[in-house]
Each structure stands twice: as structure tokens, then as C-alpha cells.
Amino acid sequence: MLAPERHELILRSLRRHGRLRVAELVAELGVSAITVRRDLAELDSAGLLRRVHGGAIGTSPAGRETQGSQLTIGIVVPSAASYYSDVIRGAEAMAGRYGARLVLGVSGYDVERERQRIDKVLEVGVAGLLISTALGDGAADQLDSRLDEIDVPVVLMERAFGFPHVAREYDHVRTDHAYGAMLALRHFAALGHRRVAINLQATVTAHWLRRGIESAAAALDVEVFLSPVDLPMRGDDPVALAQLDAFLAECEAFDSRAVLVHSDEHGARLVERAMERGLRVPEDLAVIAYNDVTAALAVVPLTAVCPPKFALGGTACELLLRKLKGDPAPVQHLSLLPDLNIRTSCGAVADAEPRVALFRN
């Protein structure tokens, strides 16, 4: 059967049923799923139907306005708060410029819930999907086929999956977190610090931060200590003080007066505890936080590496919208550079004289 004949049968069936599924068309037309998806893509481009997850729904040429006013984009993220709130706002602002709208799904960093949220968003009939998976790049071997099963265009945010973990290449927009780590270490080195203690929150970002720390430390001739202490996410955690004290003891043992902490919440609580123990910030202990969501609100405003969260959401959304409007650009892998916002917490310069009894009980 020739393509024009299949297209006519698909449109005729769509007029009867209002919605089609790929599996049903495979059985009806006697062709492969790949052929059916290609036919649906061609008809979608012609404005004769709209592709959705698993099939297609009816539309009219007039419904696909050049301003994108009828276009709906899905966005699935691990959280709608803190870091990702700015990512969502950036995507929403860009969608508004194109006259499109967003449909949000939140996974809570749960892999199974993420699968459900993706399915729910796709059922709405979105034309494309922005997604930051619950799994980070360091856990790509656990990804399975969830991305490759999505049959609308996908742009990844803060993820950079590639062969052999996915079957095809995806557009992605991510923060160069390795560069962010370099910014922090370079600032410490400029202040005269040669030993830096580091505590990384157990998040997907840590995968890239470790890479950046390793290369930056070698380039800057700075010694680093990566702490195994798991700082509490919440300051009211019953074990918070013990963990904070353990990390401060590590800083003392390493003879470090400079600390890089991921994230802002940890950095702010660490500063409070250091001051409770008689340390001056930044004179006795210089602190840089990573994320810059609430860093400026700390008791001592925190110098912080600031990923371009808002710009990341906007860039990813624009990349997807341009693709949906027929932009012939090749697959793009974009890295955005973070900034360093310098505040009060990082003014200390290491003394030439030996340090005496800075850490007191």
C-alpha cells in the first residue's frame, strides 16, 4: 500500500473515531509501527492531525496557528520548588512568547512516579515534552527505554543522556556544573586559600561537580577534601548539629579555612553552627554555596555559584517550540555557564601565620 493510500485511510478512520492508536493502525493497515509513526508525523506536519502519546487526535489546519496559540507543551521535572521553580518559570515565560501553554508533571525524584507523570502529561495531547528525569547522568545505566518510547519530540533539561543508554540522540540544555565548581575553587585560590573542604549534597548535580572539582583543583594547584559527612537537608533534623560539627571537625583536621557546600540550605546552616562555635565568617571560615536559591538570605549572605535556572528553562522551551514549528536544525547539545555571585561569606584570606585554636567547643 502506498503512502497516500495509507494517509487517506488514517484520516478516514480518524474522522470516524476522533482518536487513533498506533497499535490499532498497525493491525488495520498491515504495516510496521515505524511506518505508522512516520505517516502520523507527515500528517501532523501537514496540519491534518495532531500526534499524541501512542497515536493521534483530530484537528484542523486552522487549529495550528502560526503564533502557536493552540500549542501545548508538557514539562516533567523532579520538583516544582527551589531549583526547578525558576526552570519552570523560564519555560513558562518562553512558551508565553510563542502563545503556547505548559502542562506540568512532578516526579518527586521517584522513577516509577515519573513514568506515570509522563503518561498523564502525554495523554493531554501535548505536542512535545521538556523533561528533567529523576535519574541523573551518573545513573544513566538505569534509564531503560522510557525516553525512547515517547513518540513526541523531547528536549532534556539538566540531563545529557547519550549512546549507549538511549537509542537516539536528544536535544538537551544543561548547566555546566563542572564549570561552576571551577568558579568556586578559582575564587578561593584568588583569595589565597590552598586547601578547600567540600561537602556535596547527594543529588544528581554532584556527578558533574566532582568532575569539575577534580580538574579545577589540578589546574589551580589547590588541595581539596571531599567530605563523606551527609549534611542534613533540614536544619531541624535531630542529627543536624552532630553532622555539622563532624564536618567542621574535618575542616579543622584538613587545615582548611575555605568551604564549598552544596546546597544553599546546607551552607546557611553550616555558617550558623560555625558562628555558634565561636568562628567568624568570613574571617575564620570562608564559605561558598552552590545553587543560589536562598543564599542571599543567610545570616551571613552567602557567596554562591548561580546556575542559569530561568534561562535554562527558557532555552529548552524555545528549542522545542522551534523544532515543533519545523526548524531543520540538527540535534543540539547546549551547555549554559553559571555565574558566581560574591557576597559577605567569602572575604577571608588565608593568614601567613600558623592558625591557633580557631575551632572551639
Rank of each mutant, 00 (worst) to 15 (best):
Arg146Ile: 10
Ala56Asn: 05
Ala298Cys: 12
Leu49Pro: 09
His165Asn: 07
Leu102Thr: 09
Met233Ile: 13
Gly108Cys: 08
Arg16Met: 04
Tyr179Met: 12
Gly162Arg: 05
Ala27Glu: 15
Pro301Arg: 09
Ala202Cys: 01
Ala160Val: 06
Gly90Ile: 09
Val103Phe: 08
Asp86Gly: 04
Gly180Phe: 09
Asn361Trp: 10
Pro308Arg: 09
Leu135Cys: 11
Ala56Lys: 00
Val124Asn: 02
Lys309Cys: 12
Thr303Ile: 07
Ser69Gly: 12
Gly347His: 13
Leu147Ser: 04
Ile57Asn: 00
Arg186Phe: 03
Arg234Trp: 14
Phe247His: 01
Arg146Asp: 07
Gly212Thr: 06
Gly96Val: 12
Leu279Gly: 00
Val281Asp: 11
Pro338Asp: 09
Gly63Arg: 12
Ala298Tyr: 07
Ala80Leu: 14
Gln116Trp: 00
Val331Trp: 07
Ala253Glu: 14
Thr205Gly: 04
Glu112His: 06
Asp237Ser: 08
Gly136Asp: 03
Gln332Phe: 03
Gly58Trp: 01
Gly128Ala: 08
Arg174Leu: 14
Lys325Arg: 14
Gln243Ser: 13
Pro61Trp: 13
Leu336Ile: 09
Leu312Glu: 14
Glu123Ala: 10
Pro238Ala: 14
Arg210Gly: 02
Thr294Met: 13
Leu260Tyr: 06
Val121Asp: 02
Leu156Ser: 08
Asn291Glu: 15
Glu283Arg: 07
Ala62Thr: 13
Val77Ser: 03
Leu183Gln: 06
Ser145Thr: 12
Ser82Ala: 13
Glu149Val: 03
Phe225Cys: 03
Gln70Arg: 11
Ala3Phe: 03
Gly212His: 10
Glu92Lys: 00
Arg115Met: 04
Ala139Phe: 10
His207Glu: 09
